[in-house]
Nucleic acid binder design. Structure first.
Length: 215
DNA sequence: CGAATGATACCCT
DNA sequence: GGGTATCATTCGG
């Protein structure tokens, strides 16, 4: 079951990024379909990449678990902006989190998908260096939204960065379309304050995958 | 299990 | 313009 999901092949980095239209759909649909896609980072130090194995959908102002609930502020501006662009924020005063802006304009005026975990597939040693801890098991290098940002060297300077351009940081479909990926759903993490919104099953992950943040 | 750590939003002046 | 409660987490004891 896992073999179908784990990527054993070297990535072909000439592949086309996901198009902007991919992100112009209901946010939770995009969150589902991002599972199995690639996140690729080209930095001066080298190339790192991973397969997305865990996401969460955050809606517009009506979603009390979403940063967009604050309206259009300087911080949340990207959530209301171009789909397919990045929204990066700081939590707990120390951790960066990477989101892709995604929403269906006819239905919602804002939204983003939080990338919570990757299976590392390229540049693993560089990831380890960036993380600064030699003891991280391979599968745990990007297991969590802040670890992901650390290993991929993503910070708030990527705010509003276009993730559909093949430049520095982008999203792409796998070289060959893998078979249908089994998807588990559940409530989003750490949003208990949001009343009935906390119960929505807007967290998506590949069941049993060793790189998912919570087993 | 709980401390670390600081930007953000929001409610005051 | 200033004070402060609130965090979409992680790591070490």
């Amino acid at each position: 079951m896992l073999d179908r999901v784990l990527v054993k092949r070297s990535p072909d980095f000439s592949m086309r990024p996901l198009e902007q239209s991919f992100f112009a759909r209901p946010t939770e649909m995009v969150a589902r379909q991002l599972l199995g896609q690639w996140l690729i980072r080209q930095s001066e130090d080298g190339l790192t990449a991973g397969v997305i194995v865990e996401t969460e959908a955050y809606g517009g102002p009506e979603d009390l678990a979403s940063h967009a609930r604050a309206g259009r502020t300087r911080r949340t501006q990207p959530m209301y902006g171009d789909v397919g662009h990045a929204y990066v924020y700081l939590v707990y005063g120390m951790h960066e989190c990477l989101n892709v802006v995604a929403y269906d304009d006819a239905r919602a005026g804002a939204g983003a998908v939080l990338l919570r975990a990757l299976e590392p597939v390229a540049g693993v040693e560089l990831m380890r260096r960036r993380r600064g801890r030699a003891t991280d098991p391979h599968a745990r290098l990007c297991a969590g939204p802040a670890r992901l940002c650390q290993a991929m060297e993503v910070d708030r300077s990527f705010g509003a960065h276009d993730l559909t351009a093949r430049e520095r940081l982008w999203l792409a479909a796998p070289p060959e379309q893998a078979g249908p990926v089994e998807i588990a759903t559940g409530p989003r993490i750490g949003v208990d304050y949001s009343g009935e919104w906390a119960a929505r099953p807007w967290r998506f992950w590949i069941p049993g995958h060793p790189s998912v943040s919570r087993r």
